[in-house]
Amino acid sequence: MIVFNDVNISHENTPLLEGMSFRIKKGQKAVLKGRSGSGKSSIMKTILGFHLPQKGEIFIKDIALKAGNEKLIREFTSWVPQDIWTPLERVKDFLLYPFSFKINHHLYPDTKAIGEMLDQLMLPVSLLEKPVKQISGGEKQRIALCSSLLLKKDIILWDEPTSALDDYTKEHICSFIMQQPELTLLVSSHDAYWIEASDIIIKTEEYHVA
């Protein structure tokens, strides 16, 4: 699903990562491990086509990542960044906003599906009617994870998805994700739960340009 062949990535014209190679197969779960600033977010943004690699090849679902292909590749991906802001007022509107996009219309989830997914992410359904301003950063992030899962894309990219959560919730969400055989996942995380449960560990520091 995700193949990196000797890839170099720069950030604002400064070399960041060199000689990255890895292969994530369908259904595999991979974790990006490394300290802050070691390029974890840049790798995800490169996969999404927001940056192009300086060198090397990237294939997403056998499609080569190059200028002009970004849109095609983004049809298979769902990404949740670490910090999310929204001017939308209600939590429900925020959760459902990605389903208002033309290409996601047919994926619009019913109340039952939303309720079940919120339950797996350990969020109460009553949260949906609250104003976004009243919920915590961790809750907002989990609402975004909920949208991301409901989009049912082939590849999920999550940047530090559980950093704001307590251990119990972390463990629960992590084991729920690991039980989804269809899902190909790449997360960046410091948390032992993800690192222990993943099939592949990619240590960004090994490729980091000092």
Binding site: R74, D83, L88, F101, S148
Partner: peptide, 23 residues
């Protein structure tokens, strides 16, 4: 990053910009 978040989840440029226009 929020603009990119929406783009990465299937939005067209105008769809991703809607929250910013709203603000």
């Amino acid at each position: 990053e929020v603009y990119q978040y929406y783009i990465a989840n299937g939005a067209s440029r105008q769809e991703a910009l809607r929250p910013f226009i709203s603000e």
